[in-house]
Measured scan of single mutants.
Amino acid sequence: GSSGLPPGWQSYLSPQGRRYYVNTTTNETTWERPSSS
């Protein structure tokens, strides 16, 4: 899909309704949208 996220990243919603991002390669999580640069 065209999520616009860098490879390996997925976006999720927290129980509070906030969006966060997870790097499935490194298990890093961040509130900031990852850049593909």
Rank of each mutant, 00 (worst) to 15 (best):
T24P: 08
Y20T: 02
S35L: 12
T29N: 06
T29A: 11
P7F: 08
Y12M: 11
T26N: 05
Q10S: 09
T30S: 13
S2Q: 12
E28R: 03
L5Y: 03
P15D: 09
E28Y: 05
T30W: 07
P15W: 04
W31L: 08
Q16F: 06
E32W: 09
G17L: 04
Q10D: 11
G1S: 14
S11W: 07
W9Y: 02
S14N: 12
R33D: 09
Y20E: 01
E28P: 00
E28W: 03
Q16L: 10
T30A: 07
P6E: 04
N23E: 03
R18I: 15
S37L: 12
R18V: 15
G1V: 13
L13D: 07
P7D: 10
Q10N: 11
Y20V: 08
G17F: 04
R18F: 08
Y20H: 02
T26R: 02
S36W: 15
V22H: 09
T30H: 06
G8M: 05
S35K: 10
R33S: 10
T26Y: 02
R19L: 14
S14W: 01
R18A: 08
S37R: 08
G17W: 02
E28M: 05
R18K: 14
L13A: 03
P6W: 04
E32K: 10
P6R: 03
E32N: 07
G1H: 13
S37M: 12
P7M: 07
Q10E: 15
S14V: 03
T30Q: 13
N27L: 12
R33C: 15
G8T: 04
L5R: 01
G17P: 00
G8R: 03
T25L: 15
Y12R: 12
T29I: 15
L5F: 03
S36M: 14
Y12K: 12
Q16Y: 06
R19V: 15
T30V: 11
S11H: 04
G1T: 12
S3Q: 14
T26I: 03
E32H: 08
S11Q: 11
N23K: 03
L13M: 09
S3M: 14
T29Q: 10
R19Y: 11
S11V: 10
T30E: 03
Q10C: 15
Y12A: 10
N23W: 03
L5W: 04
P15T: 08
S14I: 01
S36D: 14
S36N: 11
S11G: 08
P34A: 01
N27R: 09
S3G: 13
G4I: 09
T30Y: 08
T26P: 00
G4A: 13
N27G: 15
Y21M: 00
R19Q: 09
L13K: 06
Y20D: 01
Q10Y: 12
Y12G: 09
L13G: 01
E28G: 02
G17A: 02
W9K: 00
S3D: 15
E28I: 05
G1R: 11
P34V: 02
Q10F: 11
R18L: 10
P34I: 02
P15H: 06
L5N: 03
T26A: 02
T26K: 03
S35E: 14
R19G: 01
G8W: 06
R18G: 07
T29V: 15
R33P: 13
S36Q: 10
L13V: 12
G8H: 07
R19N: 06
W9T: 01
T26W: 02
S3L: 15
L5K: 02
G8N: 07
T26H: 01
N27H: 13
W9N: 01
V22S: 03
L5D: 08
Y12P: 01
G17M: 03
S3F: 14
T24G: 06
S36G: 14
S37D: 14
G8E: 07
S11T: 11
L5M: 05
S14T: 15
R18E: 14
G17I: 00
R19M: 14
Q10K: 15
S35M: 13
S2E: 15
P6T: 03
P34G: 01
Y21P: 01
G1A: 13
N23A: 01
N23I: 00
P34T: 01
Y21D: 00
T25N: 10
S11P: 03
Y21R: 00
G4P: 13
G17Q: 03
S36E: 14
P7A: 10
S14H: 04
G1I: 12
S37K: 11
G1L: 13
E32Q: 10
P34R: 00
S14R: 00
P6K: 03
S2A: 12
G4V: 09
V22Q: 05
Q16V: 08
V22D: 01
S37N: 12
Y20M: 06
V22F: 09
Q10M: 14
T25D: 12
S35R: 07
N23Y: 05
S35Y: 10
V22E: 03
Y20L: 06
G4R: 10
T26S: 06
Y12D: 05
N27E: 06
Q16W: 06
R18H: 10
Q16S: 15
N23T: 00
R33Q: 09
P34Y: 01
W9R: 00
S14D: 15
S37I: 13
W9M: 00
T24R: 05
Y12E: 05
S35W: 08
N23L: 02
T25S: 12
L13W: 09
Y20P: 00
S2Y: 05
S3R: 12
G1F: 07
V22P: 01
Q16P: 02
G8S: 04
Y20S: 00
Q16E: 15
T24F: 08
Q10I: 15
S2P: 12
L13T: 08
W31G: 02
T30G: 03
Y12V: 10
T24N: 08
W9L: 01
G17D: 02
P34H: 02
S35Q: 12
T26V: 02
N27Q: 11
Y20R: 03
P7S: 08
L13R: 05
V22M: 07
G8Y: 06
E28F: 05
P7L: 08
P15V: 07
S37V: 14
W9P: 00
T25M: 14
N27V: 02
R33N: 13
P15M: 06
S3W: 14
R19P: 13
R19E: 13
G4T: 11
P34W: 01
R19S: 05
W9D: 01
S11M: 15
P34N: 01
W31P: 04
Q16A: 12
G8P: 10
E32T: 08
R33K: 13
T29H: 14
T30R: 11
L5H: 03
E28A: 05
Y12N: 06
V22W: 07
R19I: 15
S35F: 10
W31D: 06
E32F: 11
T29L: 14
T30D: 03
G17E: 02
G1N: 13
P7G: 05
N27A: 08
Y20W: 06
T26G: 01
S37F: 10
G1E: 15
G1K: 09
S35A: 13
E32M: 07
E32L: 08
T25Q: 13
T30N: 04
W31Y: 11
E28T: 05
S3T: 12
Y12T: 05
V22L: 08
E32P: 02
N23Q: 03
R18D: 13
G1C: 15
G4E: 12
S2G: 13
E32G: 04
W9V: 01
P6D: 04
P34D: 01
N27I: 02
G17H: 02
R33V: 11
E32V: 11
P6V: 04
S35I: 13
S3H: 14
G4Y: 09
W31S: 06
Y21S: 00
P34F: 01
L13P: 04
S3A: 12
R18Y: 08
